[in-house]
Design a protein around this nucleic acid. Sequence first.
DNA 1: ATGTCTTTGTGAACGCGTGCACAAAGATGA
DNA 2: TCATCTTTGTGCACGCGTTCACAAAGACAT
Lengths: 215, 215
Amino acid sequence: MPTVSSEELAAAAGVNSAKLRKDFSYLGSYGTRGVGYDVEYLVYQISRELGLTQDWPVVIVGIGNLGAALANYGGFASRGFRVAALIDADPAMAGKPVAGIPVQHTDDLEKIIDENGVSIGVIATPAGAAQPVCDRLVAAGVTSILNFAPTVLSVPDGVDVRKVDLSIELQILAFHEQRKAGEEAEAQAGAAAAPAERGNDDKGPDGDVPAVMPA
Amino acid sequence: MPTVSSEELAAAAGVNSAKLRKDFSYLGSYGTRGVGYDVEYLVYQISRELGLTQDWPVVIVGIGNLGAALANYGGFASRGFRVAALIDADPAMAGKPVAGIPVQHTDDLEKIIDENGVSIGVIATPAGAAQPVCDRLVAAGVTSILNFAPTVLSVPDGVDVRKVDLSIELQILAFHEQRKAGEEAEAQAGAAAAPAERGNDDKGPDGDVPAVMPA
DNA sequence: ATGTCTTTGTGAACGCGTGCACAAAGATGA
DNA sequence: TCATCTTTGTGCACGCGTTCACAAAGACAT
Ligand SMILES: NC(=O)c1ccc[n+]([C@@H]2O[C@H](COP(=O)([O-])OP(=O)(O)OC[C@H]3O[C@@H](n4cnc5c(N)ncnc54)[C@H](O)[C@@H]3O)[C@@H](O)[C@H]2O)c1
Ligand SMILES: NC(=O)c1ccc[n+]([C@@H]2O[C@H](COP(=O)([O-])OP(=O)(O)OC[C@H]3O[C@@H](n4cnc5c(N)ncnc54)[C@H](O)[C@@H]3O)[C@@H](O)[C@H]2O)c1
């Protein structure tokens, strides 16, 4: 039976092993003292808690440059997501397959949502169409939305919205970038001011502390 | 002189006004007691601290479906970013304009980075090409990378990497989705167990607490 | 010039996540 | 069966961000 210790896992993830054990304890995933965690069982436990053991049908609305790129993205199926339908307002696109899936017209949006039991929707329309599309999705029963349009969506309670915005990602990078430049200029006195860089995680936790650096 | 109070701002953003004031105080942005903050000055202060007052040249590597969509994205220029160059390995694409910018061949990658003083790079190549491309970017002087390929990139210290992954965004939504379903089934006893939903921010702070919910 | 009223800036308390440290569990071998 | 060794699960303390609460600053009217 292949096992891993919290120590190994923690080292690989770059986190504290105690924290990792405590986190696991919340899911009730029981390891074996003196041995570690059964890998297979652990993976299953986490997958289940994360909702990855079930199949999630997803619709993408707005099949332009971005929508097509998303539809073609292979990372879907491997994680339990299935593109149930592609929807666009352009009549010229109706029936045309993208990534092997025929594009359907927005007129049928409600029907598509309902028939496929979709609860997760992706919006890749122009900014102006995002809110109306969002409203229709929500009215049709969608309760989670991933928004790529540069708009803040208003949704009723109980509906989750996540926004992906290239500009914001770049701004975060630019912020750190600017700070790097500032710090190397500060290589004069107070050498012991280095803020203890966090391990080179890729996860990209949104923000560091703004820290104290007045004008 | 148009002004805003911390109270108004906090209400609009859905955060605590004291926190907002304290955050502002870190940038040394001085408001006027009894009046509030001068909007124009505040915007400038924040923009400057965030590194938005300067122009950031950016290169996109891998001009396929996704890369083209990113190149076409309008939200760039409005935030101080400028697409300095588009780079692809496909010789057939060389010279062909995308979003009005001619695509250049990867052979010239180092030259392009250097001549444009680029420090931020976007990777939209297939997964297999991501690490090699990343290495070349870093070697050429890029110190911030936005990665769309489904790979974990290894970079030396001092280089920031952020990863955008549709699958992960969907997983986060699915996690909450699953939890919603679980909670409504729990509508039996212990009605006072509602975990105090945070305001319907769109920001999508990465995680709530896993909370206690054993098997 | 003086009083009043609004809103800032911040000291101090609170709450929570993180990390330490260790007792207990369980495997393993004698 | 008993001793030993490894690794878990967790009580407890520390540190840090958030929130409260209020003194002080400044605008504005009289
Ligand atoms: N978040 C990011 O990083 C990012 C990156 C690139 C683009 N974008 C945004 O994504 C969106 C799409 O970008 P794009 O380059 O694919 O644009 P696009 O113009 O190529 O595609 C938009 C598609 O939406 C369809 N559409 C328009 N109105 C619709 C409606 N009411 N219902 C359904 N479909 C509708 C159009 O027919 C078109 O096919 C834009 O809002 C853009 O700003 C975001
Ligand atoms: N993060 C996300 O949400 C998301 C979404 C969709 C796609 N993707 C990923 O983005 C990447 C691109 O997706 P796509 O649909 O545009 O693929 P694509 O095949 O359409 O485009 C890839 C492009 O990269 C170019 N390329 C290949 N090797 C290269 C190299 N060594 N140097 C420079 N250019 C190179 C190709 O010529 C092609 O033009 C893929 O890795 C895909 O998995 C991510």
